[in-house]
Design a protein around this nucleic acid. Structure first.
Lengths: 240, 240
DNA sequence: CCACTTTTTTTAGTATACAAATTATTGGCG
DNA sequence: CGCCAATAATTTGTATACTAAAAAAAGTGG
């Protein structure tokens, strides 16, 4: 081991998670504590209440949720498997954070899978599903001035396309990738004009699906994701 | 809930796993018991020592490995996340088994991802990696009469291509899919002629990668997987 | 004041005891 | 004999106590 490596290993600081003053969610009926802890942690992560790189301690989470460590550990393992948590340089888990290269790689996988989903949706979507897609697109149009809400609608739209592909494994793989990307704090919708571009992409994509045109659907979907990546990178360049 | 559904739920038989008379593996140095249990279970699954659909009990596994239930549960959760174990119709886990449609879906995802991996490998593979690929192909040629060994070599070759793509997330997604397919008992190499076809595919694929031709690499890879699926389905038709 | 060692504290790993839920068994009753 | 209820046995879910390992803090000698 080189001296430099040792230095790195010694100098890592592991800020304690500060974010657990917030109200914990409540356990739903028929939900095991393990599932509850899993949901609570994922929600906290999605909501951006945990800093990337922070050391997340079993006991802190257990006390936050007022349960024992056992179900918390279960939740930890599941989320590590999801790729949202990762084993830190020390022993214990931390919130994953991605380098720029990792971001590019992640988007490459997403482009591939979204393309496949779009093509499959063009083949397999039912009429009802197509109608639902247009409904969501209409909502998007209606809410075009509320970026926060658009993020949710956008996620729902994509999720619906994955469903329309009628392939559970594709859905699963895509969910993993998209969840990982959900770790990124700021939405790209704050970039001027990006909202309109995305909306036009969505309409073209849904139309291709309606027409049963897999080739075109795949093309549009892939271009849509490539655009999303370039916007993401632009955000990064401009000081996070 | 319909009457039929109830019937199904009541009539499921849940054979106990019988397979645990075998010698358990040994814990490696520096390996936690949780990791040990994970490895032991995965090995048992890969080796086909567990029947699909059998109810796998925490206590049985714990006693088999002579450890407590706690690390066994950890292993269970991880393998469930991998998709190799699944929650049975009752409460508890069982070895996953796929319907024909699920098989087709799984291969569809694999085709997409393998195609992407091949294309990326054509772009990103280093000279050393290409050399290694040709080495493995040579081994394949040398061992062409030993189907059992070929299964291993084949897996190694594909794994090497995934690596050569230099995209950790693609590698991850592919590993999940390929592992799930590894649950299928019999290799398609027992089909006469399949070995030669596969070998030719591999050579074409590696050559395309060497030439830095992503388009062709993707095409060859996708065709290779489609062929693998049709052989798999043929096996299924012929009475498992 | 700094490098190094020792002690203390913290944290994750594991075992076990117990609770809750589910499944199997038994014993009636028509 | 078959169906249902009541009870017993099994199995998973959760909490807690303990162990081992790692990190932080406090000493110690230069």
């Amino acid at each position: 081991m080189t001296a430099a490596t040792q230095d790195i290993k010694k100098k890592v600081d592991r800020p304690r998670i500060d974010i657990f003053g917030s109200q914990p969610p409540q356990q739903m009926a028929g939900e095991s504590l393990g599932a509850f802890a899993y949901r609570a942690l994922r929600d906290a992560i999605r909501a951006g209440r945990i800093n990337p790189g922070a050391h997340i301690r079993e006991l802190d989470v257990a006390q936050w949720l007022k349960i024992s460590r056992t179900p918390v550990r279960e939740a930890f393992h599941r989320i590590v498997a999801d790729g949202l948590l990762t084993n830190g340089p020390w022993n214990g888990v931390m919130l994953a954070e991605f380098s720029q290269q990792q971001l590019i790689d992640l988007y490459a996988v997403r482009e591939t899978l979204e393309g496949a989903a779009a093509a499959l949706a063009a083949r397999n979507a039912t009429e009802a599903e197509v109608r639902l897609l247009f409904n969501i697109a209409a909502t998007e149009e209606a809410e075009k001035d509320d970026p926060d809400r658009l993020v949710v609608i956008n996620a729902k739209l994509h999720q619906m396309i994955y469903r329309a592909a009628h392939n559970q494994f594709l859905l699963q793989s895509l969910t993993v990738v998209v969840d990982a990307l959900g770790l990124l704090r700021h939405s790209t919708f704050i970039i001027p004009g990006s909202i309109d571009v995305a909306r036009r992409d969505h309409l073209k994509l849904i139309t291709a699906i309606q027409n049963g045109d897999p080739k075109r659907a795949e093309l549009v979907a892939r271009r849509h994701i490539r655009r999303a990546l370039s916007m993401r990178l632009e955000l990064l360049k401009g000081g996070k």
